[in-house]
Write a protein that binds this DNA or RNA. Sequence first.
DNA 1: CAATTTTGTGAAAACGTTTGCATTCTCCTT
DNA 2: AAGGAGAATGCAAACGTTTTCACAAAATTG
Lengths: 346, 346
Amino acid sequence: MKKNKKPESTIVDIARELGISAATVSRALNDHPKISKRTKERVSQKALELGYRRNQLASSLRNSRTFTVGMIVPRISMFFHAEVISGVQNLLHRKGYNLIICQSNDSDEIEKELAATLYSSRVDGVLVASTLYTTDYSHFDVFVEKGIPLVFYDRVPVDPYPAQLVEGDEYRGGYLAGEHLAQMGCTRIAAIFGLLSCSLYRGRLKGFKDALTAYKLEADESRIYFHELTHENALKTLEILFSTKPYPDGLFTANDTSALAMLDFARQRGIRIPEDLKLVGYSNDPRAASVTPSITTIDQFPGEVAIQVVDALGRLLENRTKSILEEPRTVVTPVALIKRQSTNPQ
Amino acid sequence: MKKNKKPESTIVDIARELGISAATVSRALNDHPKISKRTKERVSQKALELGYRRNQLASSLRNSRTFTVGMIVPRISMFFHAEVISGVQNLLHRKGYNLIICQSNDSDEIEKELAATLYSSRVDGVLVASTLYTTDYSHFDVFVEKGIPLVFYDRVPVDPYPAQLVEGDEYRGGYLAGEHLAQMGCTRIAAIFGLLSCSLYRGRLKGFKDALTAYKLEADESRIYFHELTHENALKTLEILFSTKPYPDGLFTANDTSALAMLDFARQRGIRIPEDLKLVGYSNDPRAASVTPSITTIDQFPGEVAIQVVDALGRLLENRTKSILEEPRTVVTPVALIKRQSTNPQ
DNA sequence: CAATTTTGTGAAAACGTTTGCATTCTCCTT
DNA sequence: AAGGAGAATGCAAACGTTTTCACAAAATTG
């Protein structure tokens, strides 16, 4: 199937055919007020006829605006991130922006590389949920220096960084979880968090501890674990937690994958949930709703996060055209406790 | 925080500082063989010093290669698609390509728009899982005409279309499901499919019917339903299916969401699974594994789909540089039956 | 040592679009 | 009728890079 690729037609082609200048064609296509109605009609007619499509590259080069936004996420297929991406993409599309998606696979090396590529592509703005291990954010400096809108969300820099931040109310999430377990009568509460290098878990831990304190339960440090929140890691920790009596009667895991691991472990060891142990997860992963017993968890409202992220970006994009730069600002998105069977004594 | 955006430095700046020509700088940066080692070193040294980053726009405009691939999917957050996107993004990144993601939200109007935008952005290739309703594929003609690599996957054109196709083995998936239900002793087998406008369900239906026939079970048309596969729709259909005895003793749903709906319905109506009814879903959604009873389903190996898609695209991209165009070709990716509790009589 | 090849570099054009400024033409105004 | 205003368009430069062609200098050859 030999294809004779037609060459792309340009405004120059249109101009030639119509016997006018390329400048006029350009203005006509952009609905410039000084161009006569008649010319505009002739131009758009001819454009259609020749199958003309604007070359966005050339346009962007000239205007230094690409109408493209870059997004770096740790893993596209994680439920929360997939939802945020989906929301962001829809919102940006409405504003006439494209979205370049990159995933760091939670490697800060790759993250660096991606930042460089996005800069090369001269994106108009960048959205980042960084890796769990990013502590040095200097690979984003180039965007700050060049005044390119930069928004961090979810996993945000721990130390002050001159960019917009959109973060979940991690403290409240942790607090709600701890409070709920306390209210349900747990006294030996254990918890599993991710590494504290990541902003997420710092907040959750603090909120969790404060809740226990508020309920006159000392947070027992020996029952709090920190590691990457995978299914396997969770099982290992649970082995330890349930190796010596008294067993914990409440468990907060900082993601739902670990909570699901607890369910497996419980089934295998004959631990009854919620009777013997009450369980709270985090993220409101769809699986948490469909397992038996369903898992009490903290919803992060990814749709709302998407809205806030795009909103913050939008403000920056507008300000940039006015070349006013905004103060770094932090937006906190809500969380909510979703009560389910795993903490419900009937 | 007023920022004086530094202007971006260009190869011309480097050239000026070094007292050489821009052409030489360009060649040095691209590791052109004719440039002396010494010059290359001086250039890359100075580039680093000035914080130079290639302007990909200008480069692309000149070379008419953007190293960007566009991808149109119905919904980013659907499990299967999120997995494919994730795989594709990783593979493309390794090849030095960026990925622009677009979601059609299953609207063919939006799909059209997105195709036009991607063309405007002069992507080097396009990957498409079309909407459930796309029957007219002419908005992709522009890519075919201009010889831009185009790969359809998952939801592919039903009628012949001159592009590469990567589709799951839908026939086999349907067959495996029907066969398994038959082997487990079901005799009154019902099924719920999506609309037959979509390639997916045609294949699954045919395979399913053939399996029943092979097991001497006539496929009872009155027990086969077609509609958009949402939770609510499934419940409505189930109301009908379970309104008159004899009730079905086997059910195949063409996605897992509907299978989960069946689980809810069963719980509510006191139908025991698998004792009273055996259930097979499709897609191997993570929820299918974690519910009780866990749901037997068909895995589509999204990772493998990603590999095949990128492979097909890769061949096209290479051929394009040699300006040989490949015959349209169809690759079929495997599926597998994952047996779980919903069909397992202890 | 002259002739030839090789090596390294530069000048300029090109990619397709946008835009500041200039220009033409028409239509008023006094 | 001269001058001015306004409308519609054109000219040419610019965005930053790559590449063809040409050319000088250096190295090789006989």
